[in-house]
Design a protein around this nucleic acid. Structure first.
Length: 589
RNA sequence: GCCAGGAUAGCUCAGUGGUAGAGCAGCUCACUCGUAAUGAGCAGGUCGAGAGUUCGAAUCUCUCUUCUGGCUCCA
């Protein structure tokens, strides 16, 4: 039985409309590709966020010019006003239809017996597809889609299966939305932390010195120090103690922790000293446990909240390295909480409140939590899991946080809350993780003496707020597009004399700001004032302090902010005080 | 790791077989200027590394390194 999609597109919610349009555009693209390569084998072509892709097995590799040609054919097909016709097929009929399409046959073979098999046909192309689609190709606006890139992709993501060619495209309801999306992509590129890192002289990586390893330049280090100072201050208030632990540990440690059994592929190869193997640490937890075990712990000592800015090394495959966001060496803002079963509810509540405050202070206002529960293969008593999961869930609900349940998504050693933040461009980043661990306390045989005099196992929670300083810095750069809020800016104020006759006063003003703890300097180069302002603007420096004859006379300053606001005749002392207040209150500018 | 595309001056990039280019940055000199680029001059490259083809290679071929975009959002 053949039928067209009868639903009126207009009556569907926008997500559903876009889903159908993108899905249908993928089919049109497949038809276009088959026109050019009749012998092509088609794989799968789903709609994705903002667009679609389709995987093909082709006789030769695609070039960017091919994409243009494919687009031409697509526009031609779309113009034909071809209906999308759905047909339910018997298993045999479907197998017959796709006799020369091995990927489709494999999909058909793997469909459950009771599943209805359907095909969709538009014009000359029939695809195995569950739908749904738009009713006709005329629903696809010829100027509202664009093919973006070609990429290799393994059939079913499996490295052992053939590598297919994937064409990515974006599709929208109308050309205006497409333009807006392309503009968004441009914005994303402009804010790319790798680009800004170079432009603003924040950090670098060096292939000849090892990829995936970050070098923090003076300007980047200033931001990092501002982040770390803040981080230490809030942790002090939050009742945390700070630890420093070694960067390497002997095999015994990683054997005991289980890392050598389960995490070895991600660890740097061992170095041998005195016939013993030492491994660079991929995690800080075993070291913190070593400190825990240096004494007998009483329930009166708990909870213990121990934090460390711990630098860890993990092997990542070369192809996945990416700027600051995916690296091989990074500093985690790690902490471990050891507590009694009775304390766990309050501790989790507190750690969650604490992380939300930190995100708020850094200017990230859109937060979403993901609660991951026990997976089928896992360790630990059932009641511990239940207690832990309940405390996580209660904490989320207490904070009134938007959250999703990820059933069975926890680690084998415990449930967790992951927090994702949305940046200024609406992209989600997974940063914070709050994770129970029922494994390490057992493996290291940790204990505390409870009020009843009995030895008991403490609860252990891992927690990283920012995740890693490198990755967080990358996200921060992109979130602010390099225009850091005043309290984080590498240069908070730049003093600019209108002519070199006022260099002395400029230096004096900069010195006053510097002594008040501000990151301030004077631009005494022999550029003209206008050029200095331009440079400062390009460096996204929040405050440009202009001084000349009038200011030197009156011991005042004139200002220009990077947002273009101007003011004049402010007494120097007042200005220093105002700057100090703004920095202390973490004002954006 | 795999697929594709890159790698040319500090940065951004042009240069498709015949003696390496531009803009910015740097340096020197002049200019002393009131809120987004003063002018002139100078210097700067084993064209990612190695091998090959050729009278001749940044350019063609091969190998390697490395960067970028991807590599189950499942018909």
């Amino acid at each position: 039985m053949a039928e067209t999609e009868a639903v009126a597109l207009e009556q569907l919610p926008v997500d559903e409309r876009l889903y159908r349009i993108r899905h249908s555009t993928a089919h049109v693209m497949a038809e276009a590709v088959l026109r050019i390569f009749p012998e092509a084998k088609v794989a799968i072509g789903p709609p994705i966020e903002n667009g679609f892709y389709y995987d093909f097995d082709l006789p030769r590799n695609l070039t960017p010019e091919d994409l243009e040609q494919i687009e031409e054919h697509m526009r031609d097909i779309v113009a034909g006003d071809h209906q999308f016709i759905r047909e339910v097929q018997s298993r045999e009929a479907a197998a017959g239809l796709f006799a020369d399409q091995p990927y489709k046959l494999e999909l058909i073979r793997e469909l459950p017996d009771d599943q209805e098999i359907s095909t969709y046909t538009q014009n000359s192309f029939t695809d195995l597809c569950r739908g749904p689609h738009v009713d006709s190709t005329r629903r696809i606006h010829p100027k509202a889609f664009k093919l973006l890139s070609v990429a290799g992709a393994y059939w079913r993501g499996d490295e052992k299966r053939p590598m297919l060619q994937r064409i990515y495209g974006t599709a929208w309801e109308n050309p205006k939305e497409l333009r807006a999306h392309l503009e968004h992509l441009k914005q994303v590129e402009k804010r790319d932390h790798r680009r800004l890192g170079k432009e603003l002289d924040l950090f670098s990586t060096h292939e000849e010195a090892g990829s995936g390893l970050i070098y923090w330049h003076p300007k980047g280090s200033r931001v990092r120090i501002a982040i770390e100072d803040y981080w230490r201050a809030v942790h002090r208030e939050g009742g945390y103690e700070m630890l420093f632990t070694p960067h390497v540990g002997k095999a015994w440690l990683w054997q005991t922790s289980g890392h050598l059994d389960f995490y070895k592929e991600n660890m740097y190869a061992p170095m041998v000293l005195d016939n013993a193997e030492y491994f660079a640490k991929p995690m800080n937890c075993p070291f913190h446990i070593m400190i825990y075990k240096t004494q007998m712990r009483s329930y009166r000592d708990l909870p213990l909240r121990w934090g460390e800015l711990g630098t860890v090394y993990r092997y990542e495959r070369s192809g996945v390295l990416h700027g600051l966001l995916r690296v091989r060496g990074f500093t985690q803002d790690d902490a471990h909480i050891f507590c009694t079963p009775a304390q766990i509810g309050d501790e989790i509540k507190e750690v969650l409140r604490f992380s939300l405050k930190v995100w708020d202070d850094f200017g990230f206002k859109q937060i979403k939590a993901y609660l991951a529960t026990r997976p089928p293969k896992s360790v630990g008593d059932e009641d511990r899991w239940l207690t832990a999961q309940a405390s996580l869930q209660r904490a989320i609900e207490d904070q009134g946080l938007d959250y999703e349940l990820d059933e069975g998504g926890g680690a084998f050693y415990g449930p967790k809350i992951d927090i994702k933040i949305k940046d200024a461009l609406g992209r989600e980043w997974q940063m914070t993780t709050i994770q129970f661990d029922f494994n390490l306390p057992d493996r290291f045989d940790m204990s505390f003496i409870d009020s009843d005099g009995k030895e008991k196992r403490p609860y252990m929670v891992h927690r990283a707020l920012l995740g890693s300083l490198e990755r967080f810095f990358g996200v921060l750069i992109e979130h602010y597009g390099g225009a850091f809020p005043l309290w984080l800016a590498p240069v908070q104020a730049l003093v600019i004399p209108v002519a070199s006759a006022f260099d002395g006063y400029a230096r004096e003003v900069a010195e006053l700001l510097f002594r008040a703890g501000l990151r301030a300097e004077a631009d005494l180069s022999d550029d003209r004032m206008n050029a200095k302002i331009r440079n400062a603007q390009a460096a996204k420096i929040p405050y440009m302090v202009i001084v000349g004859e009038n200011e030197a006379q009156a011991r005042s300053v004139s200002l220009r902010t990077r947002t273009g606001e101007r003011s004049a005749g402010i007494a120097v002392d007042d200005f220093v005080r105002q700057m100090r207040d703004k920095v202390d209150s973490r004002a954006e500018i």
